[in-house]
Design a protein around this nucleic acid. Structure first.
Lengths: 200, 200
DNA sequence: CCTACCGATCGGTAGG
DNA sequence: CCTACCGATCGGTAGG
């Protein structure tokens, strides 16, 4: 009776979340295909068959990681976009939000999996991801339109937005937490690169 | 005797190159880990064991693809950098050269493998790749230094170079040959985004 | 370069 | 969630 105590209070509910978290790290580090169910099980101290109690297939684990990653970023950047202020303020807040989620200790494995392992999703989940992504990028396109109207940017074309996405998402490849640059500094430099100098 | 004619004149010498080419496409499309020796063999009409006549291991195939990709890009951009002209002309030529190799029908699978599958290299080959990459990025850093001295760019810091690399390399994710934009147009737009308007 | 094959590993499952 | 296991597939090899 005392023995059952161990898992009664609060253990059980987030074994699934632990699996997703461990999977995100392994998928980010080794890639989906090179990550083994046994790797994931070991990372959360389970036996090799046990993750299938929580997920029907390995693909479902990837889907959970990718969709959670998408929601983390969309949530943070959407909040920044909705906060109000000048187009410049909004844009700067969005840059910072995107980079913080992408580079933070806890979110970066979700982001890296999202950016690099999408092709291993089954067609239905891939379609869902693309839909999310399109909505997300529309947020940026709108922010750039507002900047353009306010005279803060020279060009708000789709190609410019794609260059921006590249500059942002590529940070995953080179950023190191102890690399001497804060996320805030990186965001500010990107803002200065893209926006026209303030008039006055 | 007549039968031996078939492979005497010019068949044999480039079976290895055919394997590398097929491997680059498959690694780019499915990823290294999800690509099977049998996939590669089938793509060049061989039996499943035969690629090992040309390569000792699957890792060696990846190494060949990645190093060839690196050489293709370094060669093209290095030539552009060495051609002379104003810092602006040199930079524009480098942008175009990088994008042409990255997005061309024949080179893009090498580039995509290079950009995404490097982590599957063995440590020695990975070190070699990083060395190549550092030399390559130094080329860009120098071009930016020259731009800065000529007053053509506001900031030539390392971070700006990394943003540039991101904008460039991310094109692999969105460019489509029939997408209505030529590589030349893309290069020009990126140049306009980064460089200051010409004085006069 | 093919034939024939091997040991290892993998995703997944039945039954408890 | 564990135990015990299965069929399939994989990288790689011997021998020709």
């Amino acid at each position: 009776m005392a023995a059952s105590r161990k898992s009664v209070i609060k253990d059980e509910p987030n074994r699934r979340a632990e699996i997703v978290r461990a999977a995100s790290r392994l998928f980010a580090e080794k890639g989906y295909a090179a990550t083994t169910i046994r790797d994931i099980a070991k990372a959360v101290d389970m036996q090799s068959g046990s993750p299938f109690y929580h997920f029907k297939t390995k693909h479902d684990m990837l889907k959970a990681v990718v969709l959670e990653g998408m929601e983390i970023i969309t949530g943070a950047v959407g909040a920044a976009a909705a906060q109000g202020g000048t187009p410049r303020d909004v844009f700067d807040a969005m840059l910072l939000a995107h980079l913080e989620q992408l580079l933070a200790e806890d979110g970066r494995h979700f982001a890296a999996t999202l950016l690099h392992e999408g092709r291993h999703l089954d067609p239905a989940a891939l379609a869902e991801l693309i839909e999310h992504k399109d909505r997300y990028e529309a947020l940026w396109q709108k922010a750039m339109r507002d900047l353009k109207r306010a005279g803060d940017i020279a060009d708000d074309s789709h190609v410019t937005r794609l260059f921006l996405m590249g500059a942002l998402n590529w940070t995953v490849q080179w950023y190191h937490p102890n690399g001497g640059r804060t996320v805030k500094q990186i965001a500010r430099q990107l803002s200065q690169l893209l926006l026209l100098p303030r008039t006055r």
